[in-house]
Design a protein around this nucleic acid. Structure first.
Lengths: 191, 191, 191, 191
DNA sequence: GATGAATGAGCATTCATTCAT
DNA sequence: AATGAATGAATGCTCATTCAT
């Protein structure tokens, strides 16, 4: 017998992967159940509605976003840690290419689904807060320009990250995502 | 304009508005036809498939994106013109709030619909090219740092623009979109 | 091509018959469509919801109840006309046995479906009113007891009619429906 | 009472109440189990099928119908006892309003469920037999008209009772149920 | 140009019932 | 006695598309 404790998890993972493959618009509960190898009604035994399952996917995605990071040498400087943010972005794209696709799907869904929006807001706040703290440390340590407002700078960094992902999605070959990030970080340095 | 072209245009506009209101996922051909006041079969007389109509909406959207800009004083400096990019973004949000929503919808759709992707790529290339030319002029004129690569800097500026729009969508109250843009522009200036 | 004007009617008739055969509880839109020989979605082209179709069946049933009557000789006395009420009941059971079954189904449904209840109330009011007018005439003509309140007597007659139908449904062989009616009419006569 | 019997009874009572509230059509085994506070599979331990449980509800209902009666003074005349039939009907509606609803539901179900029909036939035979015996006594005692056939008269009385309940369900405000009963009883009296 | 009628394939969800434990 | 997990067969309803007129 399969690990019944993990059925919910299996369903969330299957939905997550299907969203990455074909988007939320083409997500079908039947396909999710089939991927797990169970009957469609069993899916509804674990999640009352499709919406509930999607909310659980957002939670899973958030957890991945939080925990999936490239290794960072202990004692790294703020500059190294900020660069590491981008390294992590590339790392995620390599080991878990679904993640950025699912995040973007949810970003759009957020506008019409309050459950999704609330979860996503927390995720964005956490991410911005983390980048902000790194920049604040860098400002103190002299890694970054003294007149930088960490909250504003974090908004610039995270927004670039998201926007460059979008552009990369539409024109992967010609968009200089990495160089852009490097340039952005260098712009933050002291004169 | 011949009646045929008028009808096509009406349909495109109706679809564009419905996408802005409820997203591509909830777009129904019946609703589009009803909004125009014609029969559902007549819609198919003008557009063979829903996909074709959506492609036409992308064209309309691209046209809007290109032409809808805040007035710019003739003889403006490159610095003023780059700042003006952001002013235009805010201007669009005010006079045509649908535009940024539709662009984001299409951005996601692009991944699964080649027609949409190709059109969007052109739009992004045009936009980046324009920003690039402004920055190149600014570099020549001394408005921007001499060591700036205009293509890379343009990628940073346009990506920030898109990413900040996304974050603004999820948390409109707390996200410092304008301050971020101001900071980004100032970072590009000569030391 | 089938008489498109009659499609609605065909659907109502098919639903009416299926209700008579197996009751409202087992009524399936798919079965109705199949009986008419059309696709299930065509059914929804004519009736938005199953509930709407059922309401139309109540209208049809009411119309049948009103118009389906045994022939009554012109110039009949009130006594003959009241007896004729019961003759009509038997006549309906013979030429349209579905009718009393459908009426009883709707009677029960009325408790939970306001549309049905309202329509049925009108039908009952019409029926009671008709019986009342016959009895009133009979009282004037001396066919019925002088101290009869026509409204009350009508309530007795129509209620007997309905209740005896119910009992007849459960024990058709042993229930003396006709003799009961005859006795009831004779009780109304002058002493 | 052993626990098994207690559980069965609990389930029957829960089903009975749910039928009164929403009708047989909306009766769900899950709701019955939930009302009793047990698992849905436990319900099937006590009743193999839903149909069996419904049959048990009919038995419970019949028992209620037999035993739930307004108090009758010992030594009452046949006239008083027949009037008391209607008093009992009103009494039941007051202390156990569910009963008449459930009876009507089952009356309809009887047409398709032989178990229900057989049980209901017994109930109707018992009821008619009781009324018949009262009327027979009244005929002997001079309370009722000498030429009354007790079986026929009982059919009239019980049918009025059932039919007036139905009409009362559809138009509670305007239907003169009590006056009708009073008139019916008075019609049975000697001239 | 325009439409009323029609449909195939599908969609999330429901529900009585089963079965291993 | 009791239950958690699972399911098959439906169920009302949807929607882009077609086609004769």
């Amino acid at each position: 017998m399969p690990p019944t404790d993990g059925r919910r998890r299996e369903l969330v993972l299957a939905a997550y992967q299907l969203i990455a493959e074909s988007g939320l618009e083409e997500l079908r509960t039947r396909d999710i159940a089939a991927k797990v190898g169970i009957n469609i009604s069993t899916l509804h035994y674990y999640f009352e509605t499709k919406e509930d399952l999607i909310a659980a996917v957002v939670d899973h995605m958030t957890e991945l976003f939080r925990t999936l990071r490239a290794p960072l040498a202990p004692g790294a400087s703020a500059l190294e840690e900020l660069r590491h943010s981008f390294v992590t972005q590339m790392y995620r794209r390599r080991v878990e290419p679904s993640l950025e696709l699912v995040v973007q799907e949810m970003m759009l869904r957020a506008r019409r689904d309050e459950k999704v929006r609330a979860r996503l807001e927390l995720m964005l706040l956490g991410w911005n807060g983390y980048v902000e703290s790194v920049i604040a440390r860098g400002v103190r340590d002299g890694d970054f320009a003294r007149d930088l407002d960490p909250k504003i700078a974090a908004a610039v960094v995270t927004s670039y990250s998201m926007g460059s992902n979008l552009q990369h999605g539409v024109r992967p070959a010609s968009f200089p995502q990495e160089a852009g990030y490097e340039r952005l970080v260098s712009l933050l340095r002291p004169k």
